[in-house]
C-alpha cells in the first residue's frame, strides 16, 4: 500500500548572476492520498500540474521538502515515451535484465528473469532478446519498458502516461495487459494520465490535480457522474464525445 501525507515539493529556478531569484514553483503543494494494496489510483491533470513530480517522489527519484511518503514494498516506474526511455544501443535482453544485473544477480538468473518477464508482457523472448529498440513498434517498446519495470518484482508500479504516445488501438492492448498483470502479480498502481477516459477505465479511485494540489478525490463513478469541483467539470467537458 501507498500513503502520502501532506507532501510538498517546491523547485527554485536559478536565474543568471545578475538577476534576483525567481519565485519558487510549487510543483506539489500538500498532497495526500492512500492506495490500498492491489488497487489502482488514477492521477489526472493537465501538463504542468505536478503529476510527474508525484511519480518521481513515490519512486524516490526526488525527495519531498516536507510531508511523508510510505510505500510498503519495492516501487518501480514506467515512463511515457517508449522511444527515449530505452537505450538504443542495448539489446532488449540487456535492457530488461539491467535492473537484475545492477542488483548483483547471476547470469543464468538474469536470463531466466528476462525470459519470464517478456512472456508476462506477451512478447516472444526468443525472437526479441537479441534485437534493438528501433526494431520494435511503439506498442512493443512500451511492453519492453513494462517488462523492465517488473523484472525486480516490485509491489508498487508507477505508470507515468504509459499510453499517451500510442495509437488508440495499441493503447487498448496495453491497458488490458496492465490490468492482467496487476491481477496476476497483485500489484498496486499509481496511474498518471491527462485523459479522464483512460483514468476511469483503469482506476479504483481517482485524484484530479491542478497546480500542485488535489482538487478532488473520489471513485471514478462519482467523478464522471457528479463532479464536485469546477476544474473536474472543465476536464470532463473537454473530452471528445463519441
Amino acid at each position: 500500500m501507498i500513503e502520502l501525507k501532506n507532501v510538498k515539493k517546491y523547485f527554485h529556478p536559478r536565474r543568471g548572476i545578475f538577476s534576483s531569484d525567481g519565485d519558487s514553483v510549487k510543483a506539489v503543494d500538500g498532497v495526500s492520498f492512500t492506495v490500498p494494496r492491489g488497487k489502482t489510483f488514477g492521477l489526472v491533470g493537465e501538463s504542468g500540474c505536478g503529476k510527474s513530480t508525484i511519480a518521481k517522489l513515490i519512486v524516490g527519484i526526488l525527495e519531498p521538502d516536507s510531508g511523508e511518503i510510505k510505500c510498503q514494498g519495492n516501487t518501480d516506474i514506467v515512463f511515457q515515451d517508449p522511444f527515449s526511455s530505452l537505450n538504443p544501443r542495448m539489446t532488449i535482453g540487456d535492457i530488461v535484465g539491467e535492473p537484475l544485473f545492477i542488483s548483483g544477480q547471476k547470469r543464468n538468473e538474469i536470463k531466466a528473469g528476462v525470459k519470464r518477464m517478456l512472456s508476462v508482457v506477451k512478447l516472444r523472448s526468443a525472437e526479441c532478446i537479441d534485437k534493438y529498440p528501433h526494431q520494435f513498434s511503439g506498442g512493443e517498446r512500451q511492453r519492453i519498458a513494462i517488462a523492465r519495470s517488473l523484472v525486480r518484482k516490485p509491489h508498487i508500479l508507477v505508470l507515468d502516461e504509459p499510453v499517451s504516445s500510442l495509437d488508440v488501438s495499441i493503447q487498448a492492448g496495453i491497458l488490458n495487459l496492465l490490468k492482467d498483470i496487476q491481477e496476476e502479480m497483485y500489484l498496486t498502481y499509481v496511474f498518471i494520465t491527462h485523459d479522464l477516459r483512460v483514468a476511469e477505465f483503469m482506476s479504483d479511485a481517482m485524484g484530479v490535480m491542478k497546480e500542485g494540489t488535489l482538487v478532488e478525490v473520489a471513485s471514478p463513478r462519482e467523478i464522471y457522474s457528479s463532479p464536485k469541483d469546477g476544474y473536474t467539470r472543465q476536464l470532463l467537458d473537454s473530452i471528445p464525445k463519441l
Binding site: 488508440v168 488501438s169 487498448a172 491497458l175 490490468k179 477516459r197 483512460v198 476511469e200 477505465f201
Partner: peptide, 19 residues
Amino acid sequence: KHLISCIPRLGDKRGRLPG
C-alpha cells in the same frame, strides 16, 4: 468497428477493451 470501440468511454462498464 474495432477502431471506434477501442476508445475507453466515460461510464463504460467494459472491464476490458477490444484489442
